[in-house]
Design a protein around this nucleic acid. Structure first.
Lengths: 173, 173
DNA sequence: CAAGTGATGGGACTTGGTCTCATCAACCGT
DNA sequence: ACGGTTGATGAGACCAAGTCCCATCACTTG
């Protein structure tokens, strides 16, 4: 993952071949594809564990939909390490510069939203309310992530504030 | 586009080669890639014109953010033809069954949202309010589209109702 | 009628991604 | 100490997506 981010940053995503990433990491193409399902995924590693955290967060939360979403964001915070923060800006820049990567990013976020909705449905939330809460949650996640990259600190706290802002804006629509 | 949808429906997206689509349409692979930038795009043809409709809708709308979004949805309605409605369910089924296609769909929706936000910013809406309104708008677009496929009728009307439902849910978050 | 323009065909070529088989190291029970 | 198993890796054939370049053909225009 480090080799890939460095290469994408140095010479661009499109100008980098998977074989080259593997070579720099001291591996082969075969091994690369055993760890990542495609060329893009190397920039999104570990995001699948987040789904489990989302489910756990929502299952252990209070009754109100946005409260469940808040619990999900807080539960995700354990994965937002200092190393992730250090590489975050370069990673975001690479993603922003390529359509395939923006596509993958959008799918990941949609996956988060879907997981939130499913978990809330299991807790008896009405579908419309769950969808609205999840979309607001994803927006807060994006905004919180950007802010966390800038100012650092505890991600849970930053995300909580971002969600509160979003909620306030949504209420006076 | 018809050839592609038929083939995807008959034998699955992954089992269909671009050359095969081209052949059924009486063309060659070369010509295919002059009309669609990749294999997926054939299922999303014409969505790029929607961006212009969104911009126009928001520029000609009243002052409130969700009112602008409503105008955007109404402006998009002109492209929701009977033929699109007839093919809609098959198209949705194919997309739902493949990750690459869900990815492209997510990107398209994100593009709509981004265009809405940019247009609203140009009209002086605060960024947070614009983002919230756009996300709610995309959710209403999805829900409205699904409902329109079921019951038919004027898409503008269906979308307007969907947005009103979403707005009501958002207000009591 | 010659020249230009735009759409298509054809085929070489690169690369992402899959699959299969061979290798190699660590571990395990006897 | 030994044979067998397991898991990770290397190696390379192979397919399809996507790019590129050039030839062709129809249609327009001066």
């Amino acid at each position: 993952m480090r080799a890939a981010l460095d290469l994408f940053d140095e010479q661009g995503y499109e100008n980098t071949a998977v074989a080259q990433i593997a070579e720099r990491a001291g591996l082969t193409k075969s091994t690369y594809f055993r760890h990542f399902r495609d060329k893009r995924e190397v920039l999104f590693g570990g995001q699948d564990e987040l789904l489990g955290l989302i489910v756990a967060g929502i299952e252990g939360a209070q009754a109100e939909p946005l409260g469940m979403v808040e619990a999900a964001l807080v539960a995700m915070a354990v994965t937002f390490s200092e190393e992730r923060r250090a590489n975050g800006p370069r990673r975001l820049a690479v993603i922003a510069g390529n359509d395939e990567l923006r596509e993958r990013d959008a799918l990941k976020m949609a996956g988060f939203a879907r997981t939130m909705v499913d978990s809330m449905l299991r807790r008896g939330v009405a579908e419309l309310d769950a969808q609205v809460a999840a979309e607001l949650g994803i927006l807060a996640l994006r905004r919180g992530y950007a802010q966390w990259l800038e100012v650092g600190g505890d991600f849970a706290e930053v995300a909580r504030r971002a969600l509160e802002e979003v909620r306030a804006a949504a209420r006076e629509c």
